[in-house]
């Protein structure tokens, strides 16, 4: 008798582990040895540029400041190598360099291209550091594209409306590449807003139809691991079979023999099916209901054109 319980416990545990492993979308760490060689070469080149003093002769002090900032930033990376987090070091240096460019551009009156030293720095950056970030960028956009497709364009995602499209801009659900929140994978949030008009079948003493204006938050289960090129390497139990689930609230009308009554409700959504707990405010009764937000499967059964009359 205990066997099924064990199986359930194992499934729940496996699911929890899969959920926890969702955040492992970072690329494989860069070998510190190779990175050390690249940053050393970058520092050596910039030392040469700073020492040449041609910028001082030309009164191009902002260029010198820029080169010194970049060199010092690269030296700081070298000092921290070997303590893990190689990608963070690399992206941190990239951000520092972009900030330094912005400051230098302002000081130089709008353009950085005022001395050959800047072109030299750009060239050594491209060769030694930029090429690694290019690889990461390629991997990241492949992953982001895959996750966006799963989140918004999965075939069983259901039909939505203009308001739901706008609502995805809220901070919890929208894309944010700089956030390290647990529910984000390369910036794509697993959370999604649902705002839909949903037909529901109410199961009580009689079976009545109802319509609910529902809103809620749905969690998309993403794969746990990706290859170096950004392809899906490993699905989880949840990303493979459950795909998405969430909680929602609704208000609407129940249509029965006595007329229409107001319903308030709370529901649990699993993919495109929602199980509703409904409260009829006039009859002071509670019911269960079943709602469906995806209607494309009906295309096979309905004559052409009828689908347009179904709620969206």
């Amino acid at each position: 008798m205990n066997k099924p319980n064990h199986r359930y416990a194992a499934t729940i545990l496996a699911s929890a582990l899969c959920l926890a492993s969702m955040v492992r979308a970072a690329p494989a760490p860069l070998p510190a040895q190779a990175l050390r060689a690249d940053f050393s070469a970058y520092v050596t080149r910039l030392n040469g540029l700073c020492a040449s003093n041609s910028e001082v002769a030309l009164n191009l002090f902002p260029v010198l400041t820029y080169l010194t900032t970049c060199r010092d930033g690269a030296q700081a990376v070298l000092a921290r190598l070997g303590h893990g987090g190689t990608w963070d070091l690399l992206t941190g240096f990239r951000d520092q360099r972009i900030t330094a460019q912005r400051i230098a551009r302002k000081q130089l009156g709008g353009t950085l291209h005022v001395s050959p030293a800047m072109a030299d720095e750009e060239s050594v950056y491209r060769e030694r550091i930029g090429s690694k970030l290019e690889e990461k960028y390629g991997r990241d956009i492949e992953i982001q594209s895959e996750l966006f497709h799963r989140k918004y364009l999965a075939p069983d995602e259901g039909q939505a409306n203009i308001f739901e499209a706008l609502a995805q801009a809220c901070p919890l659900t929208c894309f944010n590449e700089s956030s390290q929140a647990w529910y984000r994978t390369t910036g794509v949030s697993a959370w999604e807003v649902k705002l839909r008009l949903e037909p529901v079948i109410v199961f009580g003493s009689s079976t009545d139809p109802a319509v609910l204006l529902s809103g809620g938050l749905v969690f998309n289960f993403f794969p746990s691991d990706f290859t170096d090129t950004g392809a899906v390497k490993k699905e989880t139990l949840l990303s493979d079979y459950v795909k998405r689930t969430g909680l929602c609230l609704g208000v609407g009308a129940r249509f029965h023999a006595g007329g229409q009554t107001l319903l308030v409700s709370g529901g649990w959504q699993l993919r495109w099916v929602t199980l509703w707990g409904l409260y009829d405010t006039a009859a002071h009764e509670t019911f269960f209901g079943l709602g469906v937000s995806e209607w494309d499967w009906l295309k096979n059964f309905l004559p052409g054109g009828l689908l347009n009359f179904l709620p969206r």
């Binding site: 990239r94 360099r97 972009i98 750009e122 950056y125 491209r126 550091i129 930029g130 970030l133 290019e134 990461k136 960028y137 990241d140 590449e177």
Partner: peptide, 9 residues
């Protein structure tokens, strides 16, 4: 892409 890589190729 410039924000991700620090360069325009």
């Amino acid at each position: 892409r410039f924000g991700s890589t620090g360069e325009n190729l």
